[in-house]
């Protein structure tokens, strides 16, 4: 019991620790007292402008980036865990209903048409939401929404939007637009500013909060429609809440960070190995782990080579071997 409590306390504090530690990571070396001085100054005497280089680096570059990383990682992991439960399938990730490919196409379209970041966010978010809506409508062909039809809808919509992404790349100007699209699709937190956090943070936080609120219901949904209904659930309503919240969180994350795979698939499993399958505990655990993981990977991406390595690449390169290690260590946690 005490060991469990200790794990929860560590999980709760870990994202804050990771945000703090990432303030020291980067090309420009900073000492602990220096960072402490800057934070102290900013938090207490915010009007008192000390705009030297280190302040800018800590307060305007590294801190927003770490906070955004925590939000994005947490959103992807939580919605992945929720979808795995809802679809009763451990191989599902946050993009299952097409939100990632929809958002990817939205971003590509915005790059083709306008090439300013604010339009990219709006287009990515709207197309991501639209893709999920299409999946839902396809799933509703038989009037009810059996889970398997939703998945099928997601698969269809994802592949259509992937084709549209390819088409956008094909017609893009190969010197400016094509690289922009390609880099966007690989995912990055490099452009993180406080405005981004304010804008994209709203759907992310709403989605996360909603999923945390209904997290125990996900256990029951994972028994399948039949049993969930006989256990007394209004299955359509509960499923709707989970899908909407997970979509808000994922679309919010994808629109600022691009497509970051792997987090929504694997972090929930790492959570299962640590705390078990009960979504009551698993959802908050995934939130903490996803946040830490993405901050960690983003820091790695900044340090290990001369130029930044896109996040989508590193999440898989770091996450894959780590996952295999955990599988071996915990013997799969009862699968």
């Amino acid at each position: 019991m005490t060991k469990k409590k200790l794990i929860y306390i560590i999980l709760f504090l870990a994202p804050f620790a990771f945000i703090f530690l990432s303030l020291f990571v980067g090309r420009y070396p900073l000492s602990v007292p220096e960072v402490a001085r800057i934070l102290w100054g900013k938090l207490i005497f915010s009007a008192w402008g000390l705009q030297d280089i280190s302040t800018t680096i800590v307060w305007d570059i590294r801190l927003p980036r770490a906070i955004l990383g925590a939000l994005v990682g947490g959103s992807l992991a939580v919605s992945g865990a929720a979808f795995q439960g809802l679809f009763r399938n451990p191989l599902v990730s946050s993009g299952i209903l097409g939100v990632s490919s929809g958002a990817g196409f939205g971003a590509a379209l915005a790059i083709l048409l306008f090439n300013t970041t604010s339009y990219i966010y709006i287009f990515a978010f709207c197309f991501g939401g639209m893709a999920v809506l299409f999946s839902f409508l396809i799933g509703k062909i038989y009037n009810t929404t059996p889970t398997i039809m939703l998945v099928l809808g997601g698969v269809i919509v994802s592949s259509v939007f992937s084709a549209l992404i390819s088409f956008a790349k094909y017609v893009a100007d190969p010197y400016n637009q094509l690289p922009a699209i390609t880099f966007w699709l690989m995912g990055s937190l490099a452009s993180a500013r406080y405005q981004d956090i304010m804008v994209a943070g709203v759907p992310m936080l709403l989605g996360i909060a909603g999923l945390i609120a209904v997290r125990w219901r996900i256990n029951i949904l994972s028994m399948g429609d039949r049993e969930a209904h006989t256990l007394g659930l209004n299955t359509a309503l509960s499923k709707g809440i989970v899908v909407i919240c997970a979509t808000l969180a994922t679309a919010g994350a994808v629109c600022v960070s691009g497509i970051i795979g792997w987090v929504g698939l694997v972090i929930p499993h790492i959570g299962r190995m640590l705390v078990g399958n009960d979504n009551k505990i698993l959802i908050p655990t995934s939130l903490a782990l996803g946040a830490c993981f993405l901050i960690l990977v983003d820091n790695l991406g900044r340090v290990i080579s001369g130029s930044e390595i896109p996040l989508g690449i590193l999440t898989a390169l770091v996450g894959g071997p780590f996952f295999v290690y955990l599988l071996k260590k915990t013997k799969g946690g009862g699968w």
């Binding site: 439960g85 399938n89 609120a213 256990l231 659930l233 078990g276 399958n277």
Partner: peptide, 21 residues
């Protein structure tokens, strides 16, 4: 599907007495 513990499964019987949140 997921390896829930026996207790977690039995508790699901309480869903109709538990509010949505």
């Amino acid at each position: 599907t997921f390896p829930y513990t026996v207790m977690e499964i039995v508790l699901m019987g309480r869903a109709s007495y538990t509010g949505i949140f």
